[in-house]
Design a protein around this nucleic acid. Structure first.
Lengths: 130, 130
DNA sequence: ATATTTATATCGTAACACGATACAAAAGAG
DNA sequence: CTCTTTTGTATCGTGTTACGATATAAATAT
């Protein structure tokens, strides 16, 4: 176990955590949670955003996805729609409010990545070199 | 709001989330939580690992750090030591068990980064290019 | 000697994630 | 066409994590 590599791994995780912390703060400023922002991203980018799709894409168990969606629906970010063809499935859709919040957050994250992206990249390159 | 950039941002977060999910799984296989692994990294890499230092480094409030450390101590991963010079402070140290687990996890993460590091890098480069 | 600041700790609350379990709709088996 | 199995979503109980508010003891400043 090379000590240099460990330190670089720690540094890499620190820069990542910094970015994720920014994300949490930005979401909070929009009055939502970081996971809700992630959920909205996934829903918006998908062609057929069902609970199962969200779970798979976010590496969650399906029941966790159900709960996450439930909270987002309660707060008016998302809508549940029963699939007419397959009545087991639920298709998700952003509300206008959810969409507005998502767009603002995406913009802010893109801006932040212009700042910290290079740092992340350097930290990653260092940790990958032996 | 460029649609391409949004999709690339979503893709970037997805690769990141994939790495973090691996981290959670790897920690679970060692019988600990992902945050405990992060905590051990920070403690191990620091010259003077106090509660306040851990909190700052992990972007946590001090009380969250206290609680995280408390659970890690209970599970025999970490030791609390009152600082002899400044009796307000608590200095942390890995137990032999904690250190063994940390080393195994670091190795596995370095290996995983050889695999997903390039993916993360590409996704990051794409999201940064306009 | 007293007031303020610093470092850690405790308590109540909420989001989040999970396993276990349930249930209705769809698909498959005979 | 019934019966069984699979699929998609939902509910419940539990634990981790994180927070704000509050507390306490030690160190520092006045």
């Amino acid at each position: 176990m090379n000590a240099h590599r460990l330190e670089r791994l720690v540094e890499f995780r620190h820069t990542l955590r910094g970015f994720l912390f920014f994300s949490e703060e930005a979401a909070a400023e929009e009055g939502i949670h970081a996971q809700q922002y992630q959920l909205m991203q996934v829903v918006f980018a998908a062609t057929e955003p069902t609970i199962a799709y969200v779970a798979e894409r976010m590496y969650l168990k399906h029941n966790s996805a159900v709960e996450l969606v439930g909270r987002a629906v309660e707060e008016g970010l998302l809508l549940r729609k029963r699939d007419l063809i397959d009545a087991r499935r639920v298709v998700l859709k952003l509300t206008p409010r959810g969409e507005r919040i998502l767009m603002r957050l995406v913009d802010r994250h893109l801006l932040e990545l212009e700042r910290v992206g290079p740092q992340i990249k350097v930290a990653l390159e260092k940790v990958m070199s032996k």
